[in-house]
Simulated scan of single mutants.
Amino acid sequence: MKNNVTINIGAVARRTIAMEATAINDLQQFIDADFEKVVELIATCNGRLVVTGIGKSAIIAQKIVATLNSTGTPALFMHAADAIHGDLGMIRQNDIVMCISKSGTSAEVKVLVPLVKNFGNVLIAMVGNTSSFLAQEADYVLNTTVSQEACPNNLAPTTSTTAQLAMGDALAVCLIEWHGFTAADFAKFHPGGALGKKLYLKVADLSKLHQAPQVLTTSSLREVIVEISSKMLGVTAVLDENGQLQGIITDGDLRRMLEKSVSTASVTAKDIMSVNPKTIQQDELAINALEMMRRNDITQLLAMDGTRYTGIIHLHDLIREGII
């Protein structure tokens, strides 16, 4: 709908963000004994957390369920309207039910709440009106009261749904810390895409894709050039006769050597190599290799199994896998 009123778009956007930020900050006063008990109940529950709601609150409920499931707390979403038409069957004896509502007085909620209580399940209300039907009937209340919606008509759920989302995140993070949920645990539930790869892809998974370029400290300049060229990584490791890593030679090292006015006939790998090359253990996460490359402004690392050289991990490998 268009009108002839001219608005300051930037000012409206900043006002909206400021109002929602204030509402989130105000939630701190509502972290009370009920909140702590809810965290304990969910953390020790033998069933699942069933989260329900209607309208925009139902959308927030779905997001909270997604966050909980991905961080180790079994949860499922049940639409309040569908619940009273058959979906109540998804609730099991040991489940906890959390109903999200701003008003706590919607028709669907008033029908649903007595049914849940008849089942004997613990009922948590995440509600913006602590005097409402839902709040009064619930066993525990998570207070998400806001003073005003960001909507200029104080009607469209904006600030209130932001508060619900933040309260859900506070709940999820408390449960993460309660269970000691780690990045390794997170990776189990996120195997796909770039995020999953950052959490599970190891250096060895990438270094094994290439032949491991290597020469001896006594290798000639020609042998070094052939090895770097044939392996096509722009680098080779330099080993001693016992197979122990001594250094690294890159394309850049070769160019710098050739710029010098020296005879190349007797040059060996030991004369060209850089000592103390940057290495990484092959069982390290590939994302750690990227961080090391960035810190040292280099494009490759030597992969190691203890003290044994096993190959090269290159910046291009990380790009190809979508980690960057």
Score class of each variant (00 low, 15 high):
residue 64 I to Y: 09
residue 255 R to V: 09
residue 32 D to C: 03
residue 180 G to F: 12
residue 194 A to T: 13
residue 227 E to G: 01
residue 142 L to Y: 08
residue 181 F to S: 03
residue 309 Y to D: 01
residue 264 T to Y: 14
residue 181 F to W: 07
residue 120 G to Q: 09
residue 197 K to R: 15
residue 162 T to N: 05
residue 234 G to H: 09
residue 95 D to E: 10
residue 236 T to Q: 03
residue 175 L to R: 06
residue 69 N to Y: 03
residue 253 D to W: 10
residue 226 V to H: 09
residue 65 V to T: 13
residue 41 L to P: 00
residue 254 L to M: 11
residue 284 E to F: 13
residue 1 M to V: 12
residue 233 L to Q: 08
residue 244 Q to S: 13
residue 216 L to D: 12
residue 311 G to L: 03
residue 137 E to D: 03
residue 126 M to V: 05
residue 2 K to F: 11
residue 10 G to W: 10
residue 296 N to A: 12
residue 192 G to D: 04
residue 137 E to G: 00
residue 296 N to D: 11
residue 199 L to A: 03
residue 105 T to Q: 15
residue 162 T to R: 01
residue 73 T to L: 03
residue 188 K to P: 00
residue 92 R to H: 12
residue 59 I to S: 11
residue 32 D to Q: 01
residue 178 W to K: 15
residue 153 N to K: 06
residue 271 D to K: 04
residue 118 N to Q: 15
residue 255 R to T: 08
residue 69 N to P: 00
residue 193 G to K: 09
residue 45 C to I: 04
residue 48 R to Y: 01
residue 23 A to H: 04
residue 102 K to Q: 14
residue 270 K to S: 14
residue 192 G to M: 02
residue 97 V to N: 06
residue 178 W to F: 15
residue 223 E to S: 14
residue 242 N to R: 07
residue 262 V to R: 06
residue 275 V to S: 12
residue 286 A to T: 08
residue 216 L to P: 00
residue 159 T to I: 04
residue 306 G to D: 03
residue 228 I to T: 09
